[in-house]
Design a protein around this nucleic acid. Structure first.
Length: 103
DNA sequence: CTCGTGACTCCCG
DNA sequence: TCGGGAGCCACGA
């Protein structure tokens, strides 16, 4: 399959439990390509055909929202906080608590 | 085909 | 904490 990564990424992202967050690298690794974080981003952009995709549960390795204010940052933060994810004063998330272990 | 760009990540200093 | 450089992959112009 040509889009196996895409399909795998979608499946993986859909597996992220509520109230938890996963990093791009995490998803990429579970898809078999630890270096394909950027491709995961593509998938998130392509979520048009998969609106069920919890894209808001995917953040960067720093535990922060990579989006810029006015580009969905507020939306993502709102969606996550609504699920019980706590943000620090600087807008970062404690991956030790809310990070998805991949199960 | 080449080039630029991107919701990335790792390594160094 | 911050910034620069390198790596990796896909897509559109």
């Amino acid at each position: 399959m040509t889009d196996r990564f895409h399909a795998l990424a979608v499946a993986t992202i859909r597996r992220i439990p509520e109230g938890r967050v996963a990093t791009y690298g995490q998803v990429a690794t579970l898809c078999g390509n630890p270096r394909a974080a950027r491709q995961v981003v593509r998938v998130l952009h392509s979520c048009s055909e998969n609106e069920q995709l919890p894209w808001h549960r995917v953040i960067n390795a720093k535990g922060r929202i990579s989006l810029s204010p006015g580009r969905g940052y507020e939306l993502q933060q709102a969606l996550l906080s609504d699920e019980g994810v706590e943000f620090r004063l600087d807008g970062s998330i404690d991956l030790q608590r809310f990070g998805w272990d991949g199960r």
